[in-house]
């Protein structure tokens, strides 16, 4: 009986102590929140895009990239949406590396790509051909931006740029009429190559830091 009483006292005191230690926390939720039929998967991304358009902060860019990663998982079965997300992710990496020095056209392209993506995801009955045409237009604009960045860099500084200094999503030839499976595969391969180069650069940096 005495042993049971001691155990109860310990449990009770522990719970009180934990309540005291974590007292500012929100109340436990008994059930999952109700489903909102009006909400859309891109709602959070939209807020972040608008936020980046207003001011480029480290937090906003990190949130943007995290949201892109999440959406890639959600839309992994949809190749067209995935390609849109790759373009956005690549633009995000470029903005992260260059911040306010990013080419001014980057932000208008970011908004444009996001708007097209929103259009496609909001209208599930949009024909695939229309979706591909929208993607093709954004890929062409993306290629133009890359060219502009390369020209500006060539004019400004002749030395080689770091790995993440330029958007790295591959783009189709602007005069192509449709996006083919090969083009998408090539886009995926180039993104993988970009990630590999980033990791290699990071490893080199770690070695340098470790040797100091």
């Amino acid at each position: 009986m005495a042993k049971s009483s001691k155990l109860d006292t310990l449990t009770s005191e522990l719970e009180n102590r934990l309540d005291e230690l974590f007292r500012e926390d929100v109340q436990p939720v008994e059930a999952p929140p109700p489903k909102s039929s009006s909400s859309q998967p891109l709602a959070e991304l939209k807020k972040i895009v608008l936020s980046i358009d207003w001011e480029i902060t480290h937090e906003a860019v990190e949130s943007f990239l995290a949201q892109i990663r999440l959406l890639k998982e959600v839309y992994q079965a949809d190749k067209i949406v995935t390609t849109f997300l790759q373009i956005l992710g690549s633009l995000g990496q470029y903005i992260k590396s260059n911040r306010s020095k990013a080419h001014p056209a980057t932000f208008s392209l970011l908004n444009s790509v996001f708007s097209r993506l929103e259009e496609i995801t909001n209208f599930s009955k949009m024909p695939e051909l229309t979706q591909r045409k929208l993607l093709q237009a954004e890929l062409a604009a993306y290629q133009q931006l890359r060219d502009k960045i390369s020209q500006r860099r060539a004019a400004d500084e002749p030395k080689p740029a770091p790995a993440a200094a330029e958007p790295a999503v591959p783009v189709a030839s602007p005069d192509s009429s449709v996006v083919t499976a090969e083009m998408l595969a090539q886009a995926m391969a180039d993104v993988k190559e970009f990630i590999r180069s980033e990791i290699a650069a990071l490893r080199r940096q770690i070695k340098i830091d470790a040797s100091r």
């Binding site: 999952p32 929140p33 489903k35 909102s36 909400s39 998967p41 999440l70």
Partner: peptide
């Protein structure tokens, strides 16, 4: 812990509890 329940609000397909 069944995490990420906030994503339901964004319309992302979530598993029922």
């Amino acid at each position: 812990q069944y995490n990420k329940m906030d994503l339901r609000e964004q319309g992302i397909p979530m598993m029922p509890i």
